[in-house]
Amino acid sequence: MAAVTIRNIPDETHRALKQRAKQHGRSTEAEIREILTEAVHPKGDVKIGTELAKLGRRYGGIDLNIERDRSVTEPAEFE
Protein backbone atom coordinates (compact mmCIF):
# COMPACT_ATOMS: atom_id res chain seq x y z
CA MET A 1 0.00 0.00 0.00
CA ALA A 2 1.27 3.47 -0.83
CA ALA A 3 2.27 6.07 1.76
CA VAL A 4 1.81 9.82 1.34
CA THR A 5 3.40 12.65 3.30
CA ILE A 6 1.55 15.95 3.43
CA ARG A 7 3.59 18.94 4.53
CA ASN A 8 2.64 22.44 5.66
CA ILE A 9 -0.89 21.69 6.89
CA PRO A 10 -2.12 24.75 8.78
CA ASP A 11 -2.40 24.20 12.53
CA GLU A 12 -6.13 24.96 12.49
CA THR A 13 -6.67 22.31 9.80
CA HIS A 14 -4.70 19.75 11.79
CA ARG A 15 -6.72 20.54 14.94
CA ALA A 16 -9.97 20.19 12.98
CA LEU A 17 -8.83 16.83 11.57
CA LYS A 18 -7.96 15.59 15.04
CA GLN A 19 -11.35 16.70 16.37
CA ARG A 20 -13.20 15.09 13.48
CA ALA A 21 -11.27 11.85 13.98
CA LYS A 22 -12.16 11.87 17.68
CA GLN A 23 -15.87 12.35 16.84
CA HIS A 24 -15.74 9.31 14.54
CA GLY A 25 -13.69 7.21 16.96
CA ARG A 26 -10.70 6.96 14.63
CA SER A 27 -7.09 7.99 14.60
CA THR A 28 -6.24 11.16 12.71
CA GLU A 29 -4.48 9.06 10.08
CA ALA A 30 -7.55 6.83 9.63
CA GLU A 31 -9.77 9.91 9.37
CA ILE A 32 -7.57 11.39 6.65
CA ARG A 33 -7.69 8.07 4.76
CA GLU A 34 -11.50 8.10 4.99
CA ILE A 35 -11.69 11.70 3.75
CA LEU A 36 -9.42 10.95 0.78
CA THR A 37 -11.27 7.74 -0.10
CA GLU A 38 -14.64 9.50 0.01
CA ALA A 39 -13.26 12.33 -2.15
CA VAL A 40 -12.23 10.01 -4.99
CA HIS A 41 -14.91 7.31 -4.54
CA PRO A 42 -18.10 9.05 -3.36
CA LYS A 43 -20.69 6.77 -1.78
CA GLY A 44 -23.28 8.21 -4.16
CA ASP A 45 -21.19 7.00 -7.10
CA VAL A 46 -23.37 4.10 -8.31
CA LYS A 47 -22.71 1.81 -11.25
CA ILE A 48 -25.37 1.58 -13.97
CA GLY A 49 -25.71 -2.19 -13.59
CA THR A 50 -26.48 -1.82 -9.90
CA GLU A 51 -29.22 0.70 -10.64
CA LEU A 52 -30.73 -1.46 -13.39
CA ALA A 53 -30.78 -4.51 -11.10
CA LYS A 54 -32.46 -2.46 -8.37
CA LEU A 55 -35.06 -1.21 -10.85
CA GLY A 56 -35.74 -4.76 -12.06
CA ARG A 57 -36.24 -6.01 -8.48
CA ARG A 58 -38.62 -3.15 -7.71
CA TYR A 59 -40.89 -4.09 -10.64
CA GLY A 60 -40.67 -7.85 -10.19
CA GLY A 61 -38.02 -8.43 -12.82
CA ILE A 62 -38.46 -9.71 -16.33
CA ASP A 63 -37.86 -13.07 -17.92
CA LEU A 64 -35.75 -12.97 -21.05
CA ASN A 65 -35.37 -16.03 -23.21
CA ILE A 66 -32.66 -14.94 -25.59
CA GLU A 67 -30.70 -17.48 -27.57
CA ARG A 68 -27.17 -16.62 -28.49
CA ASP A 69 -26.39 -16.39 -32.19
CA ARG A 70 -23.63 -18.97 -32.62
CA SER A 71 -23.03 -18.42 -36.34
CA VAL A 72 -19.47 -17.70 -37.41
CA THR A 73 -18.76 -14.11 -38.38
CA GLU A 74 -16.31 -12.97 -41.01
CA PRO A 75 -13.27 -11.09 -39.77
CA ALA A 76 -13.19 -7.34 -40.38
CA GLU A 77 -11.03 -5.97 -43.19
CA PHE A 78 -9.25 -2.66 -42.75
CA GLU A 79 -7.83 -2.04 -46.22
Score class of each variant (00 low, 15 high):
Glu12Ser: 11
Asn65Gln: 09
Thr50Gly: 02
Val4Gly: 00
Lys22His: 14
Phe78Arg: 14
Val40Lys: 06
Glu12Ala: 12
His14Ala: 08
Gly25Glu: 03
Glu12Asp: 15
Glu74Gly: 08
Gln19Glu: 15
Thr28Ser: 14
Glu77Val: 15
Leu36His: 03
Ile66Asp: 02
Met1Ser: 11
Glu74Tyr: 01
Asp63Asn: 15
Lys47Val: 09
Ser27Gly: 05
Ala76Ser: 08
Thr37His: 11
Ile66Glu: 06
Arg57Cys: 09
Thr37Asn: 10
Ser71Pro: 11
Asn8Val: 04
Ala39Gln: 09
Phe78Met: 05
Asp63His: 13
Asp69Ser: 08
Lys54Tyr: 07
Val46His: 05
Asp45Arg: 06
Pro75Gln: 03
Asn65Tyr: 08
Ile9Ser: 03
Val4Asn: 04
Ile6Cys: 01
Asn65Asp: 15
Ala53Gly: 02
Ile9Met: 14
Glu67Arg: 09
Glu79Asn: 05
Thr13Arg: 07
Val72Arg: 15
Met1Glu: 01
Ala76Gly: 02
Thr5Asn: 07
His14Asp: 13
Ala53Cys: 04
Leu55Pro: 03
Ser27Ile: 13
Gln19Ser: 08
Ile62Leu: 10
Ala76His: 12
Arg70His: 07
Gly49Arg: 00
Glu51Cys: 11
Gly25Ala: 09
Val4Trp: 01
Glu51Ser: 07
Leu52Ala: 09
Ala3Trp: 01
Ile6Lys: 01
Arg57Ile: 04
Asp11Ser: 10
Ile66Phe: 02
Ile35Gly: 11
Glu77Met: 12
Gly56Lys: 01
Phe78Thr: 09
Met1Trp: 03
Val46Pro: 01
Ile35Cys: 15
Glu29Gln: 03
Gly56Thr: 09
Thr5Arg: 11
Leu64Thr: 02
Lys18Asn: 15
Ile35Ala: 15
Gly49Tyr: 00
Arg20Asn: 10
Ile48Gln: 00
Ile9Gln: 08
Gln19Tyr: 07
Lys18Gln: 14
Asp45Glu: 02
Glu77Ala: 14
Gly44Ala: 07
Glu12Val: 06
Glu38Pro: 00
Leu36Arg: 07
Ile6Gln: 06
Gly60Trp: 03
Ile48Asp: 02
Leu17Glu: 10
His24Phe: 13
His41Ala: 13
Glu34Tyr: 05
Ile35Phe: 04
Ala53Thr: 10
Gln23Gly: 10
Glu67Lys: 04
Glu31Arg: 05
Val40Tyr: 07
Ile62Gly: 13
Ala30Glu: 14
